[in-house]
Structures are given as C-alpha cells and as structure tokens.
Design a protein around this nucleic acid. Sequence first.
DNA 1: ACCTGATGATTAACCGTTTCATCATATCAT
DNA 2: ATGATATGATGAAACGGTTAATCATCAGGT
Lengths: 360, 360
Amino acid sequence: MSATIRDVAKAAGKSVAAASAVLNGRTGGTIRVSDETRRKIEEAARSLGYAPHPHARSLATRKSGVLGLVFPYVEAFTDQNPFCSRIMAGVFDEAVHLKQNVMLFTAVAGDSGAAPERSIVSPRVDGLILVLPRPGSAVLEQCRKKGMPCVTVVHRPADDTEITVNADDYRGGKLAAEHLIKIGHRRIAHLGGTPYVASSAPRWQGFADTLRDAGLGPTDEALIPAGFDWADGIAALDRIMAMPANQRPTAVFAANDLCAGGVLRQMKKLGLKAPDDLAVVGYDDTWLAAASEPPLTSVRMPIYEMGVTASARLVSLIEGHDVPCRQAVLPVSLSVRASTVGTVGGADAGSSGQAKPERR
Amino acid sequence: MSATIRDVAKAAGKSVAAASAVLNGRTGGTIRVSDETRRKIEEAARSLGYAPHPHARSLATRKSGVLGLVFPYVEAFTDQNPFCSRIMAGVFDEAVHLKQNVMLFTAVAGDSGAAPERSIVSPRVDGLILVLPRPGSAVLEQCRKKGMPCVTVVHRPADDTEITVNADDYRGGKLAAEHLIKIGHRRIAHLGGTPYVASSAPRWQGFADTLRDAGLGPTDEALIPAGFDWADGIAALDRIMAMPANQRPTAVFAANDLCAGGVLRQMKKLGLKAPDDLAVVGYDDTWLAAASEPPLTSVRMPIYEMGVTASARLVSLIEGHDVPCRQAVLPVSLSVRASTVGTVGGADAGSSGQAKPERR
DNA sequence: ACCTGATGATTAACCGTTTCATCATATCAT
DNA sequence: ATGATATGATGAAACGGTTAATCATCAGGT
C-alpha cells in the first residue's frame, strides 16, 4: 500500500542504504552521498509521499519513540479530582515537544486477569512514567529487573537510585499552617493523614512542625483522618461539629480542594460561613479552588509542571544521560482567597486557579 | 537481552514455526504439533520468560493492537469541562477489555510545525477515534485517503459512509424545553448556538421546536449566544439582566454544566436565587451538576458510554466487520435537581452525577 | 508393490528499517 | 608505477516475528 524505502530507492535509482542515510540525515558517518544523490532521493520520497514505517524502524533501532504513562487505577481519567488530567497534560505536552508519543496504561489487571506488568513493561515503550501515590508496585519492580527507564511521580522512593518527581509536600503543610497562624488562628486541624499515600506524611509533618514552633501543639485533635474526596470533607465537618465547642478548631487545612469543597458545602448546609465560623485551606489549587464559593485559599501544587518534568527526565534517561538530581522536588506556593481572609482583592474572586498553563 | 522466539525454539529443540504456532494457538491450520512438542515449547517459553516483541509481530502481521485517540486541541486534558476525560475513560476501558492499547494525540501542529495528520495516520495505530466537535479535519481526510479505519465522536458526518458516535442532541434540547414548560415557564432562553460546534444546532432545533409546539415562540430573545465556559455563563447572565424586565426569561437552558455554573455564580453575586428568580438547566450532567449550589437540573449525556461505543466500533471496523448502523445516536435523559424545582427529594442533593460509571 | 491421505514438523521468504563491512574510483604524495 | 587516503555508494545481515510451501514418515486401501 504505502511506499517503502525500497520504492524510494528504486525511484531515485539509488540503494536503500543511501536512501536511509539521506532520509535520516545520517550522512556524516560511514555513509556519504553527493548533493545530486541527495536531491534525487529527497525528490523521490516527496513525490511518493514516503513515510517510514514506525514498527520496522523501532525493530531496527530498538527505540520506539513512545513513552508509557501509567496510572494506578482505572478511575484515574474519570476522577472528579483534576490531578490525573493535569499530570497527563504536562506529560503529553512535553512529550510532543520532544517528539515522543504517549501510550496510556493502568496498573490494574484487566478482565483477562493477566498480570499487567508483563504487558506494560515491554519494548512497545522506551520508558515509563508511573503515577504512584502508594508504595510498592509490580510494574516498578519489573522495570528495574528488565532495566527499563522509569520515572515515578508522587512516589516515596524506595532507595536513592529511583528517579522521582514530587512537590514539596513538607513546605506545603508549613505554608498552610503559617498562613492560618498569621491571620490569628490558634486551634487548627488538618484533614488528612491517609497513611499509605506518599504525600500525606510530609504534609502533616510540615504542618505539625509549624504548629509546634508556634507553641500551638499539635494537639490530639489536630489530625482528623480524611481522604481526598468531596464526601470526606462532608464527613470531616460533621466530626468537627460533634466536638465540644471549646476544642473545636477555628481553621482547617484540608487534604485537597475537593475535600475542602465538601467542607464548604456542608458548612453552607448547616448555615455556617467561611471564614468567620471556620477558615478553610485547600490543597492543589486546581480551578475548583477559584470556582468554589467562597473562593478557596489553597496550596498551589505545580501538577502540570510535574508532568512536564517527568516527561523531560524520562527522555533524558532513555537517551542515556543520567539525570543530575535524581529526586526532583518542585516548589509549592500559597494562593490566598476568601475562604480564609474574607473578601480579597475587591470585586474579583481571586486568581483563576490553574486553568490554562503556559508552556515554559 | 530478552528471550526471542528463536531462543524458545532452540531450548525446546523445535523449529521457530512450531514455536510460533503453539504460542499463538494457531495449531489447527497448516501447522500441526504433537502434544509432546506443545508441552516442550510451552515449558521452554515459561522458563525463559518469553514475551513476543510487539513491533516484530506488528511488522509481520500488519496489526499493532493500538487505537489512536485524537483530541482536537491541546487543552483537552486540562479543560475544566470533564467531557474529554470521560470520553477517554470510556475509550480506554473498552480498549483494555478488547485487549487493545491506546495512544494519545492532538490534532494540532506541535512546535515542529509539521502537519500532524502525517504522523497520526500511520501504521503505528490500527485505527483512530477522532473527537471532532467542529466540521472538517485534515486527519479525517487523510484517514479516508489511506483507508485507515476511523470513528468520529461528536461530529456531524460529511456523508453517510462515515462512522460516528453522537448523543441525541435534538432530544436533549427537547427534554430541557419540555421540563421547563411543564413546571410553568413561558419565557425560556437558550444559552448556546455556537455555530461551528456540531451538537449546537440540533440542541437548539429540539429546544425551539418544542417551544413552537407549545405556542411559546421561539422569540428573538430565545437564543442568547454563549460558549461552553464558566465565563460564558457569567457574561450571559449579565446580558439577561440588561434586558427589560418584561422580556427577561424566567428560565434558561445553558450550553453545558460549566456555563450553567457561571450563571449560578453570577446570580449569587447579584443576590438572585435559583430557581425562583431564574430556573437553570445545564447539559452533560457531569458531577459538576450534582456538586453545584444549588444542584443543577441537567440533560444527561452518556459521555462515558460514547467512548465505549467508539472503541467497540473501531475494533469492529479494524477486524473487517462493517458496523451495522453507521451513525450511532446514544440516548439522553434528564436529571432533575433543585436549580429548576426547588428542593427535591428531601435531604439529598439529588443523584450523584456521572462520577463512577460501571462497565456494561 | 504402489498410490493415497493424514500427521508432524521444517525451511525459507517476508514485513520495512538501519547499519556494518566492503567496494570502486579518483586524487595525491612518494 | 605504487601505495595511501578520501569520496560516493552498495550489498547484505541484522531486528524478531508470521506463514506459505514443502517434506518425511507411516498407516490403510487396492
């Protein structure tokens, strides 16, 4: 059907080796061609609409030009939490920029029941980006065994040879605590602490250390176990309201924007107003934060940039350059909005969250 | 590095043809093997940890086992609108079910500036799913030219040979209008009508026809041009409030949930309450609808199912079965919540939107 | 003794590239 | 003349599979 390199060579009256060299710009090495030959081959390729067959090329070069992006569970794409989409956007954008393709996987057995790591870790991809909030992964182990380049995202590294991309979770917890302390709060709780999620512990650490340094505990009540969903926020608020009024926190630092949204929703239902009755800080600073009512103060996590970084590092790895600093930790910042400091900035609802990132 | 089929054959003391036949279950045809030989080959493959090289196989069989999923713009993944994520979820789930892989593309030139259709329409994939809200596409043309199997989603087909997956947009518009008429509204506007988006016209048609059948217009004021973003909703409400009170609609049918969310937000800012001051109907029935305040009545579009359908049809096409009914139109329904009928169903905020779809 | 058909398995071509090893010719210094 | 070097180009072997064509052996029927 489609023209092959042999067709091009024949049409130009030259050998396939010459054609291959010209078409790949590899004419500086052992193979040399005259300008005349180059012209003929290029002309033939153009007029035949030649495009190299990716699989044939991959077979010969042992490079596929494909990055595998692996999410830990099937619901990743359909989550309310925009985290996965934004990671994907960053990974994809940078991959395109580096002329790589992206193939999608989830690290759970399909209905065939076959072990997914066997099919994911294959020459189909040159390397893998693993989004791994929880420790341990058969795919990761398989990568090491087979020597497949691999970058983990939101993963606590098992040892320092692992290439990781994380946000500065400790600092995130610290920023939230500092902000709430600075605006006068004295009883502050964290909704979070999911034990198996890698980023939970450092966030709590940063938060707790800051409270301690300010002489404010942390008390036993400072950690209210909560997950990352809307429903977790609703449940958490109910637990707070069930506490004796004199122990009840005046501010909370939620696990993420979605959880914080649940808190705000439940407050509204109970007739409470943020920030007066309870100040609320979210995490991630997705567009949800800017769109919620009232707009949510949130720790901005550079999710898109984490995706970009992961792609860039993986490609470095694939090309054989060892990446300089194995464990990347991207900076976080605080977006202050009305859920902690009343109305800010006049008529505007605060900045717009992370809706439309720019390329670097 | 990894074991090849030749290694397996050697270890079993058999030919590669026999090994290939056994390992692919192709032993009924021209090639026959004894039980003894089969056992030896299977044993050898297991002990060597043999896995076939995908590219070598693809090269020989001219099938890659990869579906390409093409979004029209780079922001698809990072959009506030969960539409693209949900399509992707459906496509991916069904692909996994059918033992296919998914590769991601966007139909815009990367920073190389090269025409994307040349690299997307390639033997790298067996077929393509094109999410194409707007008419015309270089990728689509290229597909037809090269004979690559191809399914479009949310696309108005150019001719009836095109395989498409759509929701019943006409009925969606009708459902929204019927609902609002039934609960007593007489001046109803549609925020939408984006001319180049395929689904806009039929939605307006269904809406306008229903109004007409009820003897309610549509009047000139019944169509308020608006796009699909939060900001479009805000702008639309401002336009409505600028109208003379006796022409102002008492209900609006918004382009989608995001747009409806913008309307609700702006209403809150102006001290207006839904549904008393203005009833609002959204479209898509994503989780946004259930989570907004008040919860939004919305036309449910089976987005996830559209993705599933697209995958299933593409695989049929690839396998050579012509699909029975070329233009699939999936049913829509109406999720009634408090933004049109005050508090519904007592304490609950209405159903939960389309958060966690089940596999069929 | 000879043909027929079934059974079990192999050989080799092919898929479309890349790339190493080699070759032919011309130029240039000795 | 002769060997060395540079230039331009080619043939053929990988890469790791699939598969059509072929072959060897043996049992059964005539």
